[in-house]
């Protein structure tokens, strides 16, 4: 039987390297997937430009943050970017409405097939991608300021006397809190408000909702505004926690889609669950359990092997594998998504 200290060490180790990053990453994916799923539920296509629109919103926020920093505005321990966030959201909303007006609306009026929309979103992705790189460049940008940690690893070690440290970054705390607030808001909006109900009605049965006098343009507009806001916030949180780089945002597309589909595309609850499922499977499958095992196992079972199921190079393949398995076993996802 391992000693209590060892068990605590193992627990802290696991929390520090799997649990906390997993919850943070999962929240970021969930917000992204929520945006994808809203667009999908109402407009009925997979928006491939999602990652790059995230990058756009983040870019605007960064530019405003820099400006705020240069005039000396700050939020104390919290990052200044939170002040700049409304500007980022506003710009993203405008961009989305603009794109919808000049790209997607035409195809809606033509009653084009979903795949045409997807293709158009690919074109939008190109353009937004080029635009972002043109304005801010292809390099890494950091825009975090304020207090970096809620708990520092070294301080935790000193405080508890354990071998293993535990660190919680401010951005990790912020991400989880904001994600929670947003999710509650989205559900309240969809269940309780008139616009939200109209959105759900339109999503469930377009013809019937039109008969009952719902203005389709208004529904589409509301959807874009909600999705754009979620997208911008998800992008900024991700950028604050990690770093901003246009190419990274493009690569987020796959886990975000995987999250949305695994949860059941078109289902807000599914998007959130899917986000955490993807994030945790990535962490759990690629984590080497050597140290964890050695804390718990008796002396004669100590190992020098890494005990890693899959090397970290294939991390993103995990989200893909889960996607395939879900499609094979339950094509509609965990929460029975929409399949048109």
């Amino acid at each position: 039987m391992p000693e209590t200290v060892d068990m605590l060490n193992a627990l802290v180790l696991f929390t520090n390297f799997v649990l906390i990053p997993g919850v943070t990453y999962g929240s970021q994916l969930a917000l992204g997937a929520l945006g994808v799923t809203l667009i999908y539920a109402v407009l009925r296509f997979s928006n491939f430009a999602h990652g790059d629109i995230m990058a756009f919103g983040t870019m605007i926020t960064i530019l405003v943050t820099w400006w705020l920093q240069s005039v000396g505005v700050s939020l104390g321990p919290l990052p200044t970017a939170l002040l700049a966030l409304p500007f980022g959201i506003a710009a993203t909303v405008l961009l989305c409405l603009f794109i919808d007006r000049y790209v997607y609306r035409y195809y809606r009026s033509q009653k084009s097939r979903p795949v045409t929309f997807v293709m158009a979103s690919l074109g939008v992705m190109f353009m937004v991608n080029g635009l972002v790189r043109f304005i801010i460049g292809a390099d890494d940008q950091r825009f975090f300021d304020g207090e970096r940690f809620i708990i520092k690893a070294r301080e935790f070690k000193k405080m508890t006397g354990l071998n293993e440290g535990l660190a919680i970054k401010t951005t990790q705390g912020l991400t989880v809190v904001i994600a929670l607030v947003l999710v509650v808001f989205v559900f309240w909006f969809l269940q309780r408000t008139r616009s939200g109900k109209a959105m759900r009605a339109y999503s469930d049965n377009e013809d019937l909702s039109l008969l009952s006098g719902i203005d389709p343009d208004k529904v589409v507009r509301t959807t874009w505004i909600m999705a754009a806001a979620l997208t911008a916030i998800a992008g900024v949180l991700y950028g604050l926690d990690k770093s901003f780089k246009p190419f990274t945002y493009f690569q987020l597309l796959l886990p975000i889609f995987a999250a949305a589909i695994v949860g059941g595309i078109g289902q807000p609850v599914g998007a959130i669950v899917g986000g955490y499922v993807i994030a945790f499977s990535e962490m759990i499958v690629t984590y080497p359990y050597k140290k964890f095992w050695n804390y718990l196992a008796p002396d004669e079972w100590q190992t020098s092997s890494l005990l890693q199921l899959l090397s970290t190079e294939y991390k993103f393949a995990v989200s893909f594998m889960i996607l395939v398995i879900v499609l094979l076993v339950r094509p509609t996802g965990i929460f029975k998504g929409k399949v048109y």
Partner: peptide, 23 residues
Amino acid sequence: VVLGLRSDYLAIATLGISEIVVA
């Protein structure tokens, strides 16, 4: 796996497999 499901699932699946092949 994906043909016969929604048309854009193919897009996502191919995007994923291409990244895996290169990895």
